[in-house]
Design a binder for these strands. Structure first.
Lengths: 224, 224
DNA sequence: CAGCGTGCTAAGCAGCCGACCAACAATGCT
DNA sequence: AGCATTGTTGGTCGGCTGCTTAGCACGCTG
């Protein structure tokens, strides 16, 4: 009846090559450079293959994004599980590559509804994950949420990395090093001080502490 | 002779109409939507006029950007002169419209060298202005630069507004209100406390205070 | 063996793109 | 009035775009 169009297998090797090529072009030359012919050339394949594996160019974009988004969410989850700390959240956001990817996609999403919706969905999911993590971390540290709201910390962190990514793309990097160092030092100090305070508190009231926070890394303690 | 191409007057009314139309399209649909024919249609003019007033489409983009950039720099200069305070810097960066504009342009600059260079130049200039202002303000407030480096404050401020602009474009606004309020309150408190401290210090040593710091209003301005 | 799904490709469509040119209209200067 | 400058237009060019259709060669299964 509906005579659905013939499509290549999702696990095909060629398909992955096309996605890789598209992503490379997207990062290097911006979304306007991601055309069917250029992607094919980048992958050293014939242009028609794109429409064999993807219904439309929008589908290609979505698939490129989904791959990275899925990977990002997964990585964050495991990273935060291994070492639940502000530093992990910060380090994770500091991936300029990912930030650049995001900026480009948002610009693209500006005039492609289908893509915007998808990106928005992942953005929401990721934000919730980060917020949950930070909330828990700050709570562990004993930071009162009304004085230092988790959402503000989160927005500030991602904001700083984002503006750095944007400026790096422009070749303007003044103050980036200093800012990175400062935040690093700040987190260091904060975690040390508050960690100590929390230790004190734990001695009096017998509140069970999340395992992840006990004396440094989980892996170190359990390794010997 | 070099037989230079005929070009319309820079102060022409039609030219301004074209620039306005281009800017509107840029903000509404992204840079990929800014084509000669579409811009002309948006301005209710003939497409050929674009190449009468601008050598190439890149030139059009550059002119669109320069206008806004020039205006931004000018406004910031006067605003900071009227009321030299952190609040002014913050308020100024909070213009989501400008942030969105920037994001779009950076994405565009990704694959147009001439445009990137121009944007980078303005970005550097603007950053220096902001940094100078913040440095002076913090110094006035008596904040030691090694504890609270101006560059970090600046990057954090612009970063927060930028991430909010990016998310707003996606329709994700969770926590924006809270963050705005928090920063507002923080600046309020900081300026009050440190202002008082500074007052105390001024009593002993007779340092003149910038007039701008004496309780004033930032000129409110509606969007066009 | 025929039949069929799969990966791939040659050829081509309509449409939009930036840019150019020759010509016409309006304006202002002398 | 004559003339030059400035503003505007119709027409067109080669090139790139997303996407389609028809078909090829291969391996699997009946």
């Amino acid at each position: 009846m509906t005579a659905t169009k013939r499509l290549g297998a999702p696990e095909s090797k060629t398909r992955v090559l096309l996605l890789d090529a598209a992503e490379r072009l997207l990062l290097r030359y911006g979304y306007a450079a991601v055309t069917s012919r250029r992607v094919a050339a980048e992958a050293r394949l014939k242009p028609q293959l794109i429409h064999y594996y993807f219904l439309t160019m929008d589908d290609l974009f979505l698939e490129v994004y989904r791959r990275r988004a899925e990977q990002g969410i997964e990585r964050f989850a495991t990273a935060i599980e291994v070492h639940r700390s502000l530093r992990t959240v910060w380090r994770f956001g500091t991936d300029l590559r990912w930030a650049a990817f995001n900026i480009e996609l948002v610009a693209l999403a500006n005039h492609r509804k289908a893509i915007r919706d998808e990106i928005a969905r992942y953005a929401r999911r990721f934000r919730e994950m980060q917020l949950d993590a930070i909330t828990a971390i700050l709570e562990d540290l004993g930071v009162p949420p009304d004085i230092c709201p988790p959402i503000v910390v989160l927005l500030a962190m991602t904001g700083v990395t984002q503006v750095m990514a944007l400026e790096t793309a422009l070749g303007v990097t003044t103050g980036h090093r200093e800012t990175m160092d400062f935040v690093d030092g700040w987190i260091d100090k904060g975690e040390r001080d508050l960690g100590a305070e929390q230790e004190r508190r734990r001695d009096s009231a017998d509140v069970p502490t999340p395992m992840a926070f006990r004396a440094g890394a989980v892996s170190e303690e359990g390794s010997s």
